[in-house]
Design a protein around this nucleic acid. Structure first.
Length: 241
DNA sequence: GCGACAG
DNA sequence: ATCTTGTCGC
């Protein structure tokens, strides 16, 4: 951990099929990564969108991508990059819109994390390679995905207490888990990603969550991205929180 | 009637 | 994601 970063990594828009094959290989041939030294160095990145002055009727053309690197509750590095999205959001093709943005934001971090958290699906995907898995494969970093609900996988809700989990299956394979991060609050989905299992994804999620539902690194990345957007798009209002 | 495939 | 409305805890 904390070694130099691969700044040569680029988003292979035209080679998603190769990434999918790699994903299948990783599942069968690569040893699944699991946490060893604690606390983990966790990176998270997330895209928030805004209104473009040029095309106010087209929704969400401008984007702000926040990226953070955290060790425990300590923020080691963070930044936000503004962009124009290449495509609109298309369900199932999130990687087309956000892949390049997240890839650039993460590689701009000064150090390499142990694991990457992305607000997207992993192996729970029509082609077994959602954006969270794509990013990990391209960057060579173990990755997990976190979403509000599964994309295709099926499973029942877990018990009501923090730490309770349940299996989400796609074609009889466990691709994700429901995870109760706060007692009595709607659970999140922890997705198996690049070199990670659903079980590891759930453990990583629980390791960086406490009294709030969402994982701290993702919250921080989103907070910074929204702050940057709001300062630019609503210069009059205050932006506390 | 609306949405039903991540954000 | 973003927006709106409702509920809950401090």
């Amino acid at each position: 951990m904390m070694e130099g970063h691969r700044h040569d990594a680029a988003w292979p828009v035209s080679r998603i099929g190769i990434v999918i094959k790699q994903a299948r290989l990783a599942t069968m041939q690569r040893p699944a990564w699991r946490p060893e030294t604690l606390p983990l160095d966790i990176a998270a990145a997330v895209v928030v969108s805004g209104r473009s002055a040029e095309t106010p009727d087209q929704d969400s053309e401008l984007t702000w991508t926040g990226a953070v690197l955290m060790r425990g509750s300590e923020v080691l590095d963070s930044h936000v990059v503004k962009n124009v999205a290449a495509t609109p959001y298309i369900p199932g093709l999130l990687a087309l819109r956000e892949g390049q943005l997240l890839c650039a934001a993460i590689t701009a971090l000064r150090a390499c994390p142990d694991v990457l958290i992305v607000a997207a699906a992993g192996r729970d995907h029509p082609r077994q390679a959602g954006l969270a898995l794509h990013l990990g494969a391209v960057l060579g970093i173990p990755s997990i995905g976190i979403t509000d609900r599964p994309l295709m996988a099926q499973g029942t809700y877990p018990g009501p207490r923090r730490g309770d989990t349940s299996t989400l299956l796609l074609d009889d394979i466990e691709v994700a888990q429901w995870v109760r991060t706060v007692t009595g609050v709607r659970p999140l989905v922890a997705h198996a990603g690049w070199c990670t299992t659903a079980e590891v994804a759930a453990a990583v999620l629980l390791s960086c969550t406490s009294h709030l539902r969402a994982p701290q690194p993702l919250r921080e990345a989103r907070r910074l991205a929204r702050l940057a957007r709001n300062r630019e798009q609503n210069p009059n209002s205050d932006h506390r929180r």
